[in-house]
Design a protein around this nucleic acid. Structure first.
Lengths: 191, 191
DNA sequence: TTGGTTACGTGATGTAGATCACATTCGGCT
DNA sequence: AGCCGAATGTGATCTACATCACGTAACCAA
């Protein structure tokens, strides 16, 4: 599947667009490739786009005091990622996004998204649902963080995304769970 | 201001509806009153509505093993609350919502929201933006939970919602911060 | 008024996980 | 191949916070 088909397939799960409508929608996206380790968004930058992942894996993360990293999201194919706070409120990025593997993404500017939402009710509907799902997932993670210990959160994460185990280094999984790499290492090596 | 004006004022910050449109929109809401301590949503129940707060304060919370309570949200006037996971996915509630004070809310059923979103592009736009803001706030809270210690989170919470300090008992603030009431007590009584 | 429930303070102790330190292994690069 | 930096494992120690236990004060409802 090429990037257009992947996006079309993704969108069609929520709304139905005619081929012409989708063609028009798709014309606003720009395909971009990044190498492993490359930076997509740096804290402090202006943020213009959101990114729909075609292939590879990215991380969206926050760095505290230049020392500790906390991962907000691993972005896998068909996921969307950006610094949404900065994007919607037109402020400087506070989080970073970079590539864990080689990556292909479709970029959509904030301006184009709003234009498309305005022009097509169905597209606005799609974006409402997408954000809804993100909101619900975020609430669940919040609860899990407060309610579960590290071990349970680790098992939860791997149950949800088994492919992560082989794809991303363990210190990044620790940074997602919000624990030190040492603690995570002890956790799955004990018993 | 009556409930209609409060809602109209709230909506108009994001979209502009004609008076007739708003009238039609408003006709789908039902005003409900609750007494302090009353339950609005119980875990296990079917969830039909979301709630727009007119007056008073509610809490949306999760109870683990019948023992520990974690508060996801304090809902103040002009805030929306529900178990959105259960509401959108038509599953049984996993969180509870009840009243910290006497409360007045406007209820909107899931069905009516979807109908309204479908009928009026502008209303869909409004709900997209509302969820957006919720998503961004939720991400920020996630980061704060991972990155900041209890004291900092406590100060952050009071800076954001000073009215909470006098409105809600401190053990509920502890349940929002994700710490024990003892720890919170020691925290603001030391030095 | 009184008795009971809820909120809150505070000491003593236990523990999950952070931090520091160092060893080992792996993976990419020349 | 051989080197270097990144990723990982593991012990020792430290610390924030939980938990348990108990006491006091505030707020009701009969």
């Amino acid at each position: 599947m090429n990037s257009k088909e992947i996006l079309q397939n993704h969108i069609s799960k929520t709304v139905s667009l005619t081929d012409e409508e989708f063609e028009y929608f798709f014309s606003h996206f720009k395909l971009q490739s990044f190498k492993k380790g490359q930076t997509v968004i740096s804290a402090g930058d202006k943020v213009d786009c959101e990114y729909f992942v075609i292939s590879g894996c990215l991380k969206a993360f926050f760095i505290n005091d230049e020392i500790k990293m906390y991962i907000l999201q691993f972005a896998m194919p068909t996921w969307w990622t950006s610094d949404y706070d900065a994007l919607y409120n037109q402020t400087k990025a506070t989080i970073n996004v970079d590539c864990i593997t080689d990556v292909e993404v479709l970029c959509l500017t904030n301006e184009d998204r709003e234009k498309l939402c305005n022009e097509f009710h169905q597209i606005e509907h799609f974006f409402r649902w997408r954000t809804n799902k993100g909101y619900i997932a975020s609430q669940k993670r919040l609860l899990s963080l407060m309610n579960n210990n590290t071990k349970k959160r680790y098992e939860e994460l791997l149950a949800l995304y088994p492919q992560l185990y082989n794809l991303v280094p363990k210190h990044l999984i620790a940074a997602y769970l919000g624990v030190s790499r040492e603690t995570l290492s002890r956790l799955y090596n004990s018993h």
